[in-house]
């Protein structure tokens, strides 16, 4: 099973990619943990998580071909 990850703003800077695939990640909490372990700066960043274009507020099980988006808030005007 493979999921696609899309990143925005500062999250893209931290993980140094705006899109990538991950294999065998069962849910959004696992995905966040995986990325935060690899990129510790991510822990200090707040970001919303969306699965298949829906913002999720709790842990959500991922399926094959799920698209996960990680969106930080922007403050600029």
């Amino acid at each position: 099973m493979k999921v696609s990850v899309l990143t925005f703003g500062e999250v893209a800077d931290i993980v140094n990619a705006s899109s990538f695939d991950l294999k065998d990640v069962e849910d959004t909490d696992t995905l966040k943990q995986l990325l935060e372990d690899k990129f510790p700066r991510l822990k200090e960043t707040r970001y919303a998580v969306a699965v298949d274009k829906k913002i999720v507020n709790q842990n959500v099980t991922l399926e094959d071909a799920s698209i996960v988006a990680l969106l930080p808030p922007f403050s600029g005007g």
């Binding site: 500062e10 200090e44 960043t45 707040r46 919303a48 913002i55 930080p72 808030p73 922007f74 403050s75 600029g76 005007g77």
Partner: peptide, 14 residues
Amino acid sequence: RDLFPAPPTHALNC
């Protein structure tokens, strides 16, 4: 606040 419940401790501005 449904999208971003609380502010980040730091984010870059323009």
